[in-house]
Write a protein that binds this DNA or RNA. Structure first.
Lengths: 199, 199
DNA sequence: CACTATTAATAATG
DNA sequence: CATTATTAATAGTG
């Protein structure tokens, strides 16, 4: 009775569309759930699972993950790993009135430590990156008229210096990693995004 | 080796996970995988699973799902359930300059206008200026040695972006002071401004 | 990359 | 909303 599962396992990525079977417990046909109540329940459960998976991927593999889900009711749920490029983009979603920022990580198992580390529900993350985010947001929305020329220049100077330091650190780190890296078959030169390639 | 495993499935709350060093099959500690090869493998597998889950959620619950994943190597994977508002957000993600935003004031980049529009609706206090200055000064003394590659890149991006804005504001201020102000430009396309929608 | 033993997710149920 | 029976995901391995 596992032949279906076996065949599905062969094509992991896209397919999963077969799902034809009896109404056993843990099995579900992959099509739109008609019953509204049931659909809502499934949505909540699966959304939690999906966000958890996204979180795990970001932690385990040090990947940058951004996930946005609009519920059928139009509610917005989002998850952004702490250090990602698209964070500021998703930040625009927060302006929506019906916005709900949700990160439902099960805090009852052994992953509590990491939840505390990456808890996005709390705004008081003592992370330097988060502080920088706040800092940047504030800078982006700062009224230019409230800053004098001197202030602006001072600000610019500080930012330039910091950026210089960051860039040098980046280059050192890159050189470090490329040196350690021992995979000849894959060209890992793309630290800047090139979305057209697949691996 | 596996003596403690199977029979009891009642325990769901595992608080302390650090003491157990057994390498069981389906179990993994939720922390960054150090081995690069292993991490890459895990990334591929879990990415597939995550995208599959996202796809299933979108189909089953008729939800709008948008998922973006940057691999540790910097490669971009994305999934968008349908053409929604989210899609244009992600479309913006592709177009985001990730290195240097070369913005000169003569070009009248939309970003500048975006910030100017914000200025009209917002009243900043002079306190925010000094606050930001303090923040920026503190940023200089951040220990970047402890930051990961992704953090550094993100940091760099934030700084670059902020610096660009500051520079443009400087130039605006200069232009304003020297009274070479131009005629107001026509309304350009909004730079990712989400209007309030609800259902 | 295919396979299998485990764990994790979750559909149905109380 | 908690529990349980199933299925699905996946960690380790050849």
């Amino acid at each position: 009775m596992e032949e279906e599962a076996a065949s599905m396992r062969a094509q992991q990525h896209v397919a999963a569309a077969e799902g034809r079977g009896k109404k056993k417990r843990g099995k579900v046909e992959l099509r739109r759930i008609e019953d509204r109540t049931s659909r809502q329940v499934r949505f909540s459960k699966r959304r939690s699972g999906l966000f958890k998976k996204a979180f795990e991927l970001s932690v385990l593999c040090d990947a940058e993950v951004a996930l946005v889900v609009f519920s059928p009711a139009g509610r917005l749920y989002e998850f952004v790993s702490s250090n990602t490029r698209v964070e500021e983009i998703f930040g625009r979603c927060r302006g929506l009135p019906n916005t709900v920022i949700d990160l439902n990580i099960d805090a009852q198992d052994s992953r509590v430590e990491y939840n505390m580390q990456l808890d996005l529900n709390k705004q008081s993350t003592p992370d330097s990156v988060s502080e920088l985010n706040h800092f940047a947001e504030g800078a982006l929305e700062l009224d230019v008229n409230d800053m004098s020329m001197a202030q602006l220049r001072h600000f610019e100077e500080i930012l330039t210096d910091t950026l210089t330091v960051i860039k040098s650190k980046l280059m050192m780190k890159m050189a470090e990693l490329t040196q350690i890296e021992r995979t000849p078959k894959k060209n890992r030169k793309n630290w800047l995004i090139s979305e057209s390639e697949k691996e």
